[in-house]
Design a protein around this nucleic acid. Structure first.
Length: 227
DNA sequence: ATGACGATTTACT
DNA sequence: GTAAATCGTCATA
């Protein structure tokens, strides 16, 4: 239970919410089901100094393993970079892309089965001002205007920046670790309207680009792309 | 050793 | 809407 969370306006309001750590068993299933269920859960990052950053997961994509042309494990590719995909469920797979961005996945399925869920967007909950600093840091030119809340975690690369997630967290244990983990609500937090559609940024994937493997919270302003 | 390319973000026309 | 940024990774040689 947690009393008092930071709101978009910076005002603290008293709320009663109950979350518990997601267990390894909870991750040990197919990626599509997990992707859907991750919506509404919290991703939590505890920094070295103990500062807690968190956000509600509002957008996810499932990557289905060796047959999925969009997956890093397509055709059984197993390299140093994607090794974490073959690890235990609840392992974090963090990879570097486009020469400048990190993306984070929750590995699921069984051991040696390279299936995972890409976390694409969060609605910031704890540590918004720290996130703002982390996000401003790497910008080429400082902007006079502060970043809006919706610019903090509305994309896979942005959320890693805002949550201080980089290659050091590749292989982290999302179930038992203390650095990066998932909390799920004990009670279904009201009605969560969900949209199921196609994945983003995988035009190279042939027929697999049409599969409906992306889920997001309908109407949530932190979702990265509409559609 | 070399070259091509991103599961993206940002700035600019 | 288009294009630049930017470099680790991987396949090929």
């Amino acid at each position: 239970m947690r009393l008092g969370i930071e709101t978009n306006t910076g005002i603290e309001v008293a709320v009663i919410s109950q979350f518990k750590r997601a267990t390894r068993d909870w991750f040990a299933r197919d990626a599509a089901a997990l992707a859907r269920d991750l919506l509404g859960c919290r991703l939590v990052r505890v920094q070295p100094d103990g500062t807690r950053l968190s956000g509600m997961i509002v957008e996810c994509e499932a990557y289905l393993g060796v047959h999925d042309r969009a997956s890093h494990a397509y055709a059984g590719r197993r390299t140093e970079r994607n090794a974490a995909m073959y690890a235990d469920p609840a392992t974090a797979y963090v990879y570097f892309t486009y020469g400048m961005h990190y993306c984070v996945n929750a590995v699921c399925g069984k051991v040696d089965e390279p299936v995972a869920v890409l976390l694409r967007a969060l609605e910031p909950v704890e540590g918004l001002e720290i996130m703002r600093e982390l996000r401003s840091k790497s910008r080429a030119r400082r902007r006079e205007t502060a970043l809006k809340d919706r610019d903090l975690c509305s994309g896979p690369g942005k959320l890693c920046q805002a949550m201080a997630i980089d290659r050091k967290l590749n292989g982290a244990d999302l179930a038992s670790g203390d650095l990066l983990f998932i909390e799920r609500p004990l009670r279904r937090s009201g009605k969560l309207e969900v949209v199921n559609t196609t994945r983003v940024g995988i035009d190279f994937a042939g027929e697999w680009k049409d599969q409906l493997l992306r889920w997001y919270v309908k109407g949530n302003e932190h979702v990265s792309v509409k559609g």
